[in-house]
């Protein structure tokens, strides 16, 4: 089954639509700020280990519709596991921006007190986690769903990864096990066309990963068009099914990697590069809402202003926070006997 943008019949209220847009603007504003800060002290030469934000940086611009559409259905007590490209999902799940920024800047104020970094965010408050290893975030979501099921709650776990992950063993093991035990899991594949530099048609034997769901006896759907409302509709069905004890679902969203795999990626392998900015989902959604008379310039300015205020507060807070104490580098290896 494929959901095209034009097929969307989701009956969203104006408030819901504006909330989706607001979430996407907040994410984009955050990613633009990280982009700015990441590169600010790495020029003229690019040294990946230099600067206030060192290391690999995988930004999620273009993939906001997945996060906003999915997380609109998730409660604080629901779990979400993500990947090396996690910021959009972390923000949409409700992670505190100061804690997130603090960790990205490697500060004591960060979620992991600087032990994790941007690919390793663990937030008990929002049941959010991510893994830097492709496809290895799926199994933990099974366990969280298992714990929710055993506790008799209606909480669910969502597990998000890129289309490259759908060719890795843990994806298939996890789908089988989740379906076998009817675990309340929503598997979400973000198909951004590229596994670093390898195009999806060079890596994937099926036209859409949604069809793989049939192999595990669960519903599968592909959402085309990087359309936040279509994601919202598909995720709504899957989350409701999981909450009601109907077991797992698989959703593949055809989304967009607006920037490189990581910062510093010149993307010479990407023939469609010139067209990419024109496919940006946020201006497209703004146009759609404006054309429908649902979004005023004042609304938009307010959303952008609020996002800027929150994001710059988080960035400033991170910059002002102390670095972790090198004498405490061994702290937190174990709970007991440190």
């Amino acid at each position: 089954m494929t959901m095209e943008t034009t097929e969307v019949t989701a009956d969203l209220s104006t408030g819901q639509r504006l909330a989706l847009l607001r979430e996407m603007i907040l994410i984009r504003t955050f990613e633009e700020a990280v982009l700015r800060e990441y590169h600010a002290d790495k020029s003229p030469g690019f040294d990946i280990g230099k600067g206030l934000i060192p290391g690999e940086m995988h930004l999620s611009a273009g993939q906001e519709p997945v996060a906003a559409g999915l997380c609109a259905h998730l409660e604080t007590g629901d779990a979400l596991t993500a990947t090396h490209r996690p910021h959009h999902l972390a923000i949409a799940k409700g992670m505190d921006l100061r804690s997130l920024a603090g960790e990205i800047f490697g500060r004591e104020s960060g979620l992991g007190h600087g032990r994790g970094g941007h690919m390793h965010l663990f937030d008990p408050a929002t049941h959010f986690s991510c893994s830097g290893i492709v496809a290895e975030g799926f199994p933990a979501a099974l366990g969280q769903a298992f714990a929710f099921q055993r506790a008799g709650t209606s909480n669910v776990a969502a597990a998000v990864a890129g289309e490259g992950a759908a060719n890795a063993g843990p994806f298939h093991e996890s789908l089988n096990l989740a379906a076998l035990w009817k675990l309340p899991v929503i598997f979400v594949i973000e198909d951004n066309d590229w596994g670093i530099s390898v195009a999806r048609n060079a890596s994937t034997s099926v036209p859409t990963n949604a069809v793989r769901a049939a192999g595990y006896g669960m519903p599968g759907v592909r959402v085309e068009g990087n359309d936040v409302e279509a994601v919202h509709a598909a995720a709504g069905e899957a989350v409701a099914r999981a909450r009601a004890g109907g077991g797992p679902s698989l959703i593949e969203v055809h989304t967009l990697r607006l920037w490189g795999h990581f910062e510093g990626d010149a993307q010479g392998y990407r023939p469609e590069l010139a067209d990419v900015p024109g496919r940006d989902p946020i201006p497209a959604y703004q146009r759609k809402l404006r054309d429908a008379g649902l979004l005023s310039e004042a609304d938009l300015a307010e959303m952008e202003g609020e996002a800027r205020t929150r994001v710059e507060d988080a960035v400033e807070h991170a910059k002002a926070a102390p670095a972790p104490n090198p004498a405490e580098a061994l702290k937190y290896v174990f709970v007991e006997g440190e």
């Binding site: 779990a79 596991t81 049941h127 986690s129 290895e136 799926f138 199994p139 933990a140 979501a141 099974l142 366990g143 969280q144 769903a145 298992f146 714990a147 929710f148 055993r150 776990a157 063993g169 843990p170 093991e173 996890s174 089988n176 096990l177």
Partner: peptide, 16 residues
């Protein structure tokens, strides 16, 4: 499915 069920154990442990 050792990856799936060991990972399942991890997720369950994380949730208490």
């Amino acid at each position: 499915s050792e990856s799936a069920f060991i990972g399942l154990g991890i997720g369950a442990a994380v949730e208490g």
